Amino acid sequence: MKIAIMMRAMDQESGFRAYIEGLIENMLAIDTENSYLLLYRTEKFLGRFSAHKNVKEVLLRAIHKLVWDQVAVPYMAIKEGVDIIFNPKFSVPLVSRCPVAMGIQEPDWWVFPEYYKRFDVFYIKLMLPIYCRKASYLFPMSRFNLEESRKYLGLPLKNATVTYTCPGDHMKPIDNPSVIQEFKEKYCLPDRFILGVTRVDHPGLDNFEKIGKFFPGKNPHTILKAFINCRNDIPHHLVLAGRRVRDYMVHLGFTDEDFIKVHFITFVPYEELPKLYNAAEMSIMPAYYDGCSTTLMESMACGCPVIASQTGGSLEIGGQGALYADPFDPLDFAEKIRSVANDNHLRSELRRICLQRAADFSWQRTAKLTLDGLIQTVKKYQGANSEKKCVEFVDT
């Protein structure tokens, strides 16, 4: 069987690139029987999987992503004799000679339409239901994403398997104190701190720094409000990691007095994130609408206790491995922060159970579920075609 995978989303500067890399790497690790055709729109990551003998990587150029999706990809699939086309993100060729499958993320365009271009919102609301109907199989990243998509799209979305994203293999506890100390010195971090890994930009906002708009969905202002409420009761500082987070807080009206014991650092490279989680004594994640929080998984995998939002998909991801609070109530978060900050036994217990919960997420399992879904789809498609040919033969 030959599987074509649309790799266009690899070009995004977001956590989704880590998802695609983790998924493809592990699919290739467990599957040496099938061949893979990886289709790129730019040269940036061309050759990333060239070490695998059953992989062919191809650069497809097109003037627009729509042309790439709907013309270049299906043409190459025909040329290469592909059995199925899979896009880990949310579009598929509408005309193809083989079945197509795609991933599903949370339907942000319905919830936060103001953070996308108007045309993009119109396009997605028009086309996403069409793509879902066309797709023979769907891979939502969480049950929450699946149910939200069913609600907003008004479709049953029956042929679906939940395939969670997972923390990278480097997301794990670090036992070497000197490594953590060196990292703290590099970023001028305090000895004891609570952490908020967040963002105030959004993939739907082009030229983010130029237009000056902010995305409040990750809710970092609730972290700051909660910390202001409890900072005199705990020995910790607050570290907020992300681009332009301080600018966002100033935009909301916070002052230098509010920033006492607060440290803002730029976006930490993905490779260094385990050091950040290991250096912190807890992570605060009050996002309003995370469908499948990668940062929640990463923090748990590093043994950093988490206080997360009780809305969105956080409860599904965190399970018993985190504490939860109301993202609309900073005082609720402040109370939980006090409890964890002032109780060494509670922090140790949370560290133990969050590591247990993180172990439930496995790239090998996600890769196998994805591969099984693709194989099942091809077999069903080929079986239906065989029956159709038999009927046509009898009729003649």
Rank of each mutant, 00 (worst) to 15 (best):
K151Q: 05
P107Y: 07
S142F: 05
L146F: 00
P156H: 05
C166L: 11
S136T: 04
Y164L: 00
K125G: 11
V111K: 05
L94V: 10
R97V: 13
Y123D: 09
F90Y: 03
R143G: 15
D108M: 07
T165S: 14
R143F: 13
L157D: 04
L126Q: 05
K134I: 03
R143L: 15
R143H: 15
P156T: 13
V92Y: 09
G168K: 14
V100P: 13
T165E: 15
I130L: 02
V121S: 06
L155H: 11
L128A: 11
D108C: 06
C98M: 13
P113A: 12
V95A: 09
I104K: 09
R118E: 14
W109F: 14
L153D: 01
W110C: 04
L155E: 01
V100R: 08
P140C: 01
P113Y: 02
L157C: 02
W109G: 01
S96G: 08
Q105P: 08
L126F: 14
P129K: 09
L138V: 13
T165D: 15
P107N: 04
M102T: 03
K151V: 01
F112C: 09
D120P: 04
T163N: 01
I124K: 13
F119I: 04
T163I: 06
K89E: 14
Y137E: 15
G154F: 03
Y137W: 12
L155P: 05
F144I: 12
F139S: 10
W110M: 13
K134H: 02
C166S: 04
K125F: 09
C98W: 04
Y123Q: 08
P99D: 07
S149D: 10
V121E: 01
P140V: 00
R133S: 10
S96I: 02
R133L: 14
D108P: 11
P107A: 03
L153Y: 03
K89I: 06
S142C: 00
A135G: 01
K158C: 04
M102P: 12
Q105R: 01
F119M: 00
G154P: 03
T163S: 07
V100S: 04
Y116K: 08
E114Q: 14
E148L: 11
P107K: 03
V162H: 12
V95Q: 00
K151L: 00
Y116I: 07
L126V: 07
F119P: 08
Y123A: 14
K89Y: 13
L126S: 07
F119G: 07
A135T: 13
K151I: 07
F139G: 00
F119H: 12
L155W: 06
I124H: 15
G103K: 04
V162C: 00
S96A: 14
Y131N: 09
A160T: 01
Q105L: 15
W109E: 15
L157W: 04
F139E: 03
T161M: 08
M141I: 12
K158Q: 13
V111I: 15
D120H: 09
K125A: 07
P93A: 11
F112Y: 15
Y123G: 06
K151S: 05
E106V: 15
Y115I: 11
L94H: 06
W109K: 11
L153Q: 03
G168L: 09
G103S: 05
P99H: 01
V121L: 02
K89N: 10
S96K: 08
D108H: 13
F112R: 13
